[in-house]
C-alpha cells in the first residue's frame, strides 16, 4: 500500500505564535484518520497546511511520495488532487447548485461543459441533491449545503479528502445526513483526514484517531485504544470533558 500523505516535523507560526509544533503524521491509501482535540489545538491549521492554503515554516509534506512543500511546486495542481470541505461550507452564493459543482472541473480541469454537467448531476443524484440543481445555495438547508460542499469537492476526483469539522455548524438533526455521506465515502475507499468533534462517529469510521494538543500529536492509535484506554493525561482530561458534555 502506498502512502497517500506524510507530514514530517511540520511547524507553522502565525506571527509569534507557533500553532503546529512538529507534526509527524502518515496516512496510507484508503485510510481514514480522525483528528480530535480542543479548539485552538491546530486541527484546522493542519488541514489547511496539507492543501497549501497555509505555508508551513519548517518540515515537509509529501503527497503520494512527492514533496509538495518544496520549491517550484505547482500549487494549483496539488490542490486539484485534494478535496477540502469547510465548517462554514463556503459555497459560492452567486452560483446555482450545479454551477458550484461544475466550476472546478470546467475551469481547473478543462472538462467540457456538457460532460462536467452530466458528471455533476450524477454526483448530485447520488447524494440526494439532484432536484435542487438550479437553486441557489441560500435556498438549501444547512445539511443540504454541506452535502453540496462535499459534492463540489468530490467533483474534482481528488485522491485525498480533508474534512474540517464539517458538522460543527449544523443543527443536530442535520448532522446525520452529512455523516451518512462521509460514511459512504469511507466505504468507497476514499483516503480521508477528518477533523471532528463527533466522537461516536470518529470511533465508528476511523482506522486511526490522532489527539492533537497544543500543536503536537500527543497520542494516536486505533479508536478503541484512544477512546477507552488513552495513555496520556491530557488525552484523558480531554475525553473526560467530552463525555461530560454528552458528546461521547
Amino acid at each position: 500500500m502506498t502512502e497517500a500523505l506524510r507530514l514530517e516535523n511540520v511547524h507553522k507560526y502565525f506571527g509569534r505564535l507557533e500553532v503546529l509544533r512538529g507534526i509527524d503524521l502518515a496516512l496510507e491509501e484508503h485510510e481514514v484518520v480522525c483528528l480530535i482535540g480542543a479548539s485552538g489545538s491546530g486541527k484546522s491549521t493542519l488541514l489547511r497546511c496539507v492543501n497549501l492554503l497555509e505555508r508551513i515554516d519548517a518540515g515537509r509534506i509529501l503527497l503520494a511520495g512527492e514533496d509538495i512543500t518544496g520549491r517550484g511546486v505547482d500549487v494549483n495542481g496539488v490542490r486539484r488532487g485534494i478535496g477540502i470541505v469547510f465548517q462554514a461550507f463556503n459555497l459560492f452564493p452567486h452560483m446555482t447548485v450545479v454551477r458550484n459543482v461544475t466550476l472546478g472541473p470546467r475551469k481547473a480541469l478543462g472538462v467540457p461543459r456538457d460532460r462536467a454537467e452530466s458528471d455533476a448531476l450524477a454526483l448530485l443524484e447520488r447524494f440526494g441533491l439532484a432536484d435542487k440543481r438550479d437553486e441557489y445555495p441560500d435556498r438549501l438547508s444547512g445539511g443540504q449545503q454541506q452535502r453540496l460542499a462535499i459534492v463540489r469537492a468530490l467533483a474534482m476526483r481528488p485522491e485525498l479528502m480533508l474534512l474540517d469539522e464539517v458538522t460543527s455548524a449544523l443543527d443536530p438533526e442535520l448532522v446525520g445526513e452529512v455523516l451518512e455521506v462521509i460514511r459512504e465515502l469511507a466505504e468507497g475507499g476514499m483516503t480521508m483526514l477528518i477533523a471532528t468533534h463527533e466522537m461516536a462517529f470518529a470511533r465508528e469510521i476511523a482506522r486511526r484517531v490522532c489527539f492533537l494538543d497544543a500543536g503536537v500529536i500527543l497520542e494516536q492509535g486505533p479508536p478503541e485504544e484512544i477512546f477507552t484506554t488513552p495513555r496520556e493525561q491530557r488525552t484523558q482530561e480531554f475525553l473526560r470533558r467530552v463525555i461530560e458534555a454528552g458528546r461521547l
Partner: peptide, 24 residues
C-alpha cells in the same frame, strides 16, 4: 473564505478572481 474555497478547488488566482470574487 470564498477565495480559499475557490483556490482549494485548484483554480488559480486569476480564475478565483474572475469567477468567484469579482462577481460577488
Amino acid at each position: 473564505s470564498q477565495e480559499a474555497a475557490a483556490r482549494s478547488l485548484g483554480l488559480n488566482r486569476g480564475q478565483a478572481l474572475r469567477f468567484v470574487i469579482i462577481p460577488q
